[in-house]
Design a protein around this nucleic acid. Sequence first.
DNA 1: TTGAATTTTCAGGAAGTTCTGAAATTATAG
DNA 2: CTATAATTTCAGAACTTCCTGAAAATTCAA
Lengths: 188, 188
Amino acid sequence: MNLSELSREFVLHFGEMGSRWGINRTVGQIYALLYVAERPLNADEIAEALAFSRSNVSMGLKELESWRLVRLQHLPNDRREYFSAPEDVWAIFRTLAEERRKREIDPTLSMLRGAIMATPANEADRFAQKRMKEMHDLIELATMWFNDVQRLEPETLKQLMKLGARVQKLLEMKDKLKVVTGAKAQGR
Amino acid sequence: MNLSELSREFVLHFGEMGSRWGINRTVGQIYALLYVAERPLNADEIAEALAFSRSNVSMGLKELESWRLVRLQHLPNDRREYFSAPEDVWAIFRTLAEERRKREIDPTLSMLRGAIMATPANEADRFAQKRMKEMHDLIELATMWFNDVQRLEPETLKQLMKLGARVQKLLEMKDKLKVVTGAKAQGR
DNA sequence: TTGAATTTTCAGGAAGTTCTGAAATTATAG
DNA sequence: CTATAATTTCAGAACTTCCTGAAAATTCAA
């Protein structure tokens, strides 16, 4: 298991990027390696390819499993565990987004909710609450939207993205239609 | 400058969250403090409120300036520099997204482009390139879309988000319309 | 069972980062 | 200019995170 120039560059880059995010270098590299690997790899192969200690790889894989970013499987007549990255790139991004939501966004939202509900002690508190409410509403809207939209078919999503800013025209069209047909509730 | 219970909780939470992202605890707290402050604060006030050394605050503010997340201003008859967080929450998120794109996404895209263009040395390389291309295309589509959509009015964006998954209906409607009116180019 | 293969845990050293106080630099009022 | 206020820089101490090798635990074939 020795890496080609091409894959090595990819793996190293992901290591650096990983450490910019919460994920550490080792974990980033392991993930990148699995992503470009043609077949599932076992821990020894990973350790050799990346020149990490066996135990480091074990911990990295644990981390990736907790992020649900790797699949564990067994090959016939081989006791070792083999790991691979899910094939569908859209699914990978969805998982990543979902996990981050659970770990970072949800706790933030609940902290904000608590703070907004609390009785303000003075004018400064009232102002702070106003600011927190603005942030809360934006985050909530964005996550609900994300939640909603990530369940669409990748093809639909692609279509929407390709539309880009022209989605505005579509929205305007929709509103006009509502006016013409005399629908009562606008927006939601 | 002493913090109310309410603001302190917010500030501490942001400190922790900050360290989950690349941003460190100090920087997260400084930002949170400015975000809920009614008026611009100077470095000494920040240092006192958060019980950080003056120099630590100085470095934190530098970092925030490099992310374009704080505004620097001067008050009449006061030599000190006063800092504040932009008021528009949507603008804040846009800035954050833009900066991350510049620092993390763009370099990744160019690395991927380079790797995809390179001549593959063997079958494994060819496979790796296929995977990299999938990732490249998804990231590129998503960033182009983001770029496009972030220029829309916050109101339009809100409307789109509230629509959520029902956007699918709108897309279908659009396609039917195209068929009916006999438009030639579909999608883009 | 036993024992070899495999994986996990963990103490502690290595590496990296954060934070401080002191000194240097910069800005400006007089 | 000079003196003082304000800010920045920086070496190193304090703290955190990462990584390893050794030992423990688990798994499974025989």
